[in-house]
């Protein structure tokens, strides 16, 4: 694998995470528990889609095959996607959506912090812009997880269920392969495993405040970031997201 091939894979991983999570969050539009949450969820989705345009735009450039961010988003099939499984699982109730957001935001903010000092200036520039938005996402999702975890009996129970359901998807964030090795060697991105300690410290603090118990299991589903095995859910998501582009090839929108 050449350095550019590895870089393109890395950029797809970043962009596919924001694309798929942005899509999931946008499914809430008009259905949130309070108006302020509708606004906040739309805002989060909007930021994530904006970040997708940057990551996938750069991925297309590095691939050098004339593909735009839109081509990559709308014209690839499931096996081409490189997002974490965590972001493609269905929304579930509001608690699960916010728990997923919090787990992702925690990882994302740490990752972007490292990427801001990337040896690749283009990567560093995108990370600098995104990290401001993501710091805000994390503040919000963590506050909500704390509020609901330490709320009523019902909200506590639902948040614990959400954490139990999602925890097996956390491990994938910290798995490394030859793409990551190449990125570390080039000084472009950190080794995913090296983020674990910061993540654990942050999540332990948030879940502690939320009075929630982190499951005592190191098991982790995997296959999203390598593309080897996604969940069944991703295909349905793409069916909806890509429909117009697929049904009317070549049209300009």
């Amino acid at each position: 694998m050449t350095r550019d091939e590895a870089l393109a894979q890395f950029l797809l991983r970043m962009g596919d995470n924001t694309l798929i999570l942005g899509h999931r969050v946008s499914e809430w539009c008009g259905h949130a528990p309070v108006l302020e949450e509708d606004i906040a969820l739309a805002n989060t989705a909007l930021d994530l889609i904006g970040q997708t345009q940057m990551w996938l735009g750069l991925a297309g450039e590095v691939q050098g095959m004339g593909k735009s961010a839109d081509d990559l988003a709308f014209l690839r099939d499931v096996w081409d996607f490189r997002n974490l499984l965590l972001v493609e699982v269905p929304n579930g109730d509001f608690g699960r959506t916010l728990m997923r957001q919090c787990l992702f935001d925690a990882w994302h903010s740490i990752q972007l912090g490292h990427l801001m000092t990337s040896s690749d200036e283009r990567v560093a520039a995108i990370a600098a812009k995104a990290s401001k938005e993501v710091a805000y996402h994390l503040e919000r999702s963590a506050d909500t997880v704390v509020g609901l975890g330490d709320g009523t009996e019902e909200s506590h129970r639902r948040m614990q269920e959400a954490l139990d359901y999602l925890w097996p998807y956390v491990g994938e964030m910290f798995q490394s392969d030859e793409v990551d090795a190449e990125m570390v060697k080039a000084g472009i991105a950190p080794d995913p495993a090296s983020l674990r300690a910061d993540f654990d410290a942050l999540i332990t603090r948030i879940m502690g405040e939320a009075t929630l118990t982190i499951p005592d299991s190191a098991f982790g589903h995997k296959g999203g970031r390598t593309g080897k095995m996604h969940t069944e859910h991703l295909g349905h998501l793409l069916t909806q997201m890509q429909w117009l582009q697929r049904a009317y090839p070549g049209a300009k929108w």
């Binding site: 528990p33 309070v34 509001f94 608690g95 909500t144 709320g151 009523t152």
Partner: peptide
């Protein structure tokens, strides 16, 4: 569906 969220946050 959002009642538990509003109650929890309150």
């Amino acid at each position: 569906d959002g009642a538990w969220v509003r109650d929890g946050l309150l």
